[in-house]
Amino acid sequence: MEISVDRANEVLIAKVEGRIDGANAREFEDALNGAIGEDDSKVLLDFSTLSYISSAGLRVILLIARLLQKRNAAFALCSLSDPIREVFEISGFDKIISIHDSQAEAVDKIGS
C-alpha cells in the first residue's frame, strides 16, 4: 500500500495504491492521518490504483470521515474500480460518503 499526496483547488488528494486489508489497515490509518493537515478542509481519496479493500480498510475510511465531519471538512472518494465500488455499495457506505467517477469531477464538486 502506497499513498501519494497532491493538492488541487485547495483539495488534498491522496492517491492510494495497492491493497488495504487487516494486515495494513493500521498503517493506512496512520498514513492518512499524517497526510491530512490540520488546515485541510477538503479531502479526496483517489482509489484509481487501489486493488482491494477489506472491512478493516472500510473502518479506517469511516474513522477519517467522522474526523473530517467533526471539523466540517469535505470528504469524498473517486475513481473506484467496479469491485471496490461494489464493496462500498454492499456495505451501504456509498450512502454516507460521496463517491465520484473521476478526480476532475470530484475536485470540481468539492473544490473552491
Binding site: 472500510l58 469511516l62 454492499i90 456495505s91 451501504g92 457506505f93 450512502k95 454516507i96
Partner: peptide
C-alpha cells in the same frame, strides 16, 4: 435484492 441498508454501527 438489497433492502437499502447500511452496515450496523456506522450511522
Amino acid at each position: 435484492p438489497g433492502t437499502d441498508g447500511l452496515a450496523l454501527g456506522v450511522f
